[in-house]
Measured scan of single mutants.
Amino acid sequence: MISNAKIARINELAAKAKAGVITEEEKAEQQKLRQEYLK
């Protein structure tokens, strides 16, 4: 099960992506976390 901290990070990265200020490194982290969440 995914931790609350990881869910919070997913939401934080989603907000950054929506604002258009996300880095390529953060995009990769976001994809990794989303895949983990979906498992």
Rank of each mutant, 00 (worst) to 15 (best):
residue 1 M to Y: 13
residue 1 M to I: 14
residue 1 M to W: 09
residue 1 M to T: 12
residue 2 I to P: 09
residue 2 I to S: 08
residue 3 S to L: 07
residue 3 S to K: 08
residue 3 S to E: 09
residue 3 S to R: 06
residue 4 N to F: 08
residue 4 N to L: 15
residue 4 N to G: 14
residue 4 N to A: 15
residue 4 N to W: 07
residue 5 A to L: 10
residue 5 A to D: 12
residue 5 A to S: 10
residue 5 A to Q: 12
residue 5 A to G: 08
residue 5 A to R: 10
residue 6 K to S: 08
residue 6 K to M: 15
residue 6 K to Q: 10
residue 6 K to G: 05
residue 6 K to T: 13
residue 6 K to Y: 08
residue 6 K to C: 08
residue 7 I to C: 15
residue 7 I to P: 03
residue 7 I to E: 05
residue 7 I to L: 15
residue 7 I to W: 11
residue 7 I to V: 09
residue 8 A to P: 03
residue 8 A to W: 05
residue 8 A to S: 07
residue 9 R to G: 01
residue 9 R to E: 01
residue 9 R to L: 03
residue 9 R to M: 02
residue 9 R to I: 02
residue 9 R to S: 01
residue 10 I to Q: 03
residue 10 I to K: 03
residue 10 I to P: 00
residue 10 I to M: 15
residue 10 I to D: 02
residue 11 N to C: 15
residue 11 N to P: 00
residue 11 N to H: 14
residue 11 N to R: 15
residue 11 N to E: 11
residue 12 E to R: 04
residue 12 E to I: 06
residue 12 E to D: 05
residue 12 E to C: 06
residue 12 E to F: 06
residue 13 L to G: 00
residue 13 L to V: 00
residue 13 L to P: 01
residue 13 L to D: 00
residue 13 L to E: 01
residue 14 A to P: 00
residue 14 A to V: 07
residue 14 A to F: 12
residue 14 A to E: 13
residue 14 A to Y: 07
residue 14 A to K: 09
residue 15 A to D: 06
residue 15 A to M: 12
residue 15 A to N: 07
residue 15 A to Q: 11
residue 15 A to K: 10
residue 15 A to I: 09
residue 15 A to Y: 06
residue 16 K to Y: 03
residue 16 K to P: 00
residue 16 K to F: 03
residue 16 K to W: 02
residue 17 A to G: 04
residue 17 A to C: 14
residue 17 A to H: 06
residue 17 A to D: 08
residue 17 A to T: 06
residue 18 K to H: 09
residue 18 K to G: 05
residue 18 K to T: 07
residue 18 K to R: 13
residue 18 K to P: 00
residue 18 K to M: 13
residue 18 K to N: 07
residue 18 K to L: 13
residue 18 K to C: 12
residue 19 A to E: 08
residue 19 A to S: 08
residue 19 A to P: 00
residue 19 A to Q: 09
residue 19 A to R: 08
residue 20 G to L: 03
residue 20 G to A: 03
residue 20 G to M: 04
residue 20 G to P: 00
residue 21 V to I: 14
residue 21 V to R: 09
residue 21 V to S: 12
residue 21 V to N: 11
residue 21 V to E: 07
residue 22 I to C: 00
residue 22 I to D: 02
residue 22 I to M: 07
residue 23 T to H: 01
residue 23 T to K: 02
residue 23 T to R: 03
residue 23 T to L: 03
residue 23 T to A: 01
residue 24 E to Q: 09
residue 24 E to L: 08
residue 24 E to T: 06
residue 24 E to R: 07
residue 24 E to C: 10
residue 25 E to Y: 05
residue 25 E to P: 05
residue 25 E to W: 06
residue 26 E to M: 01
residue 26 E to N: 00
residue 26 E to K: 00
residue 27 K to H: 05
residue 27 K to F: 07
residue 28 A to F: 09
residue 28 A to L: 13
residue 28 A to H: 09
residue 28 A to R: 13
residue 28 A to T: 10
residue 28 A to P: 00
residue 29 E to R: 02
residue 29 E to S: 02
residue 29 E to M: 03
residue 29 E to F: 03
residue 30 Q to R: 11
residue 30 Q to M: 15
residue 30 Q to I: 13
residue 30 Q to P: 00
residue 30 Q to D: 04
residue 30 Q to T: 03
residue 30 Q to G: 04
residue 30 Q to S: 09
residue 30 Q to K: 04
residue 31 Q to M: 13
residue 31 Q to H: 11
residue 31 Q to T: 12
residue 31 Q to S: 10
residue 31 Q to E: 15
residue 31 Q to P: 00
residue 32 K to Y: 11
residue 32 K to S: 07
residue 32 K to V: 11
residue 32 K to D: 05
residue 33 L to F: 03
residue 33 L to Q: 01
residue 33 L to T: 01
residue 33 L to W: 03
residue 34 R to M: 15
residue 34 R to E: 13
residue 34 R to T: 12
residue 35 Q to L: 14
residue 35 Q to F: 10
residue 35 Q to P: 01
residue 35 Q to W: 14
residue 35 Q to S: 10
residue 36 E to I: 05
residue 36 E to G: 04
residue 37 Y to W: 14
residue 37 Y to A: 08
residue 37 Y to I: 13
residue 38 L to Q: 12
residue 38 L to N: 12
residue 38 L to C: 14
residue 38 L to P: 04
residue 39 K to S: 14
residue 39 K to M: 14
residue 39 K to H: 14
